[in-house]
Amino acid sequence: MSDAVAAPQDARIEGATARRQARNLPFQFNGNGFEFFRIWIVNILLSIVTLGIYSAWAKVRTQRYFYGNTRLDDSSFEYLANPVAILKGRVIAFACLVAYSVANQVSVTLGLVALALFLLALPWMLVRGLSFRNHNSAWRGVRFGFDGTYGGAAMAFVVWPLLGALTLGLLIPLAVHRQQRFIADNSRFGTTRFELKVGVGPFYMAFLVVLAIAIIGGLLGVLLGTAVPLLMPVLMTAAYLVLFAFISVRLTNLTYGNLHLGANRLQSRYDLGSYLLLMLGNLLGLVLTLGLFYPWAKVRNARYAAEHMSLQAGDDLEGFVAARQQEVSSLGGEMGELFDVGVGL
């Protein structure tokens, strides 16, 4: 880590585009499980005492802990969200969630109306959520940003998945590719845009492997399960875990590993074996401690991510300029979180 980290200090060349040797800059994560455990438990304690109001501050503290402990080229990331904005978003989102679940319980038609409204609001929630997250993430005092539109999000997250379902899954890899492209290509650091340079082919390859794992796992489960009935649930669970790990690993490598920012490019080297070990360790820890292992699991995940990613820097990383400030409300982001809308990036 030492030579890469010390480099920018003596690079006092005027003009940001001064070309230098491409450097491979590792990410570093300096968090510690016990330290985060204390933060986590105090977060919960205060959230309980304040009847949930503190949970917005708790979220900011958690995010700040993980951002602040992640370093690149000797500078750490920053999470800048205002807890009051998050609290407002949470209150409104919670009211909507209650209305949604009550509508579902009350009658089938009302449930369908609620679902339609939810689908209409989904793209908006995604765009606002990504805007809020990016706008409040910064490195070296320069904020990230997101410029996606409602239409773009509607295509990527509603229309393409629907087409995927209508074609019995044939277009699902294409839909996933569109979604990742939508998220990446609309994101920027300061005024510089990210770009996802990968075709749809690798997504189809990954899809085929997923199918193969599912089929082989299912067949093995049934075949061995009829011989030794006790093995069936064990094998099914194992197949499920492998499937889950494979999708995480491949999707992360495809999306992060092909992410370009100006002359720089991210590299992602997740691999299935070590990721499975990480997941099994976390699961075991959580089950054995009845959930108290949770903070350590989060720290382990963050460390794994940092250790398996790096930035291939094509310039000195000094030319990124902050964009003009504008405020972004948290509402969409909190809605997305409450409705469990997964956004992977």
Partner: peptide, 18 residues
């Protein structure tokens, strides 16, 4: 569901599985 959200603080994949 609300209690689970308060304790885990988010709904990440590992926690929701468990």
């Amino acid at each position: 569901g609300l209690v689970v959200m308060t304790v885990t603080g988010d709904l990440s994949s590992v926690s929701s599985l468990v």
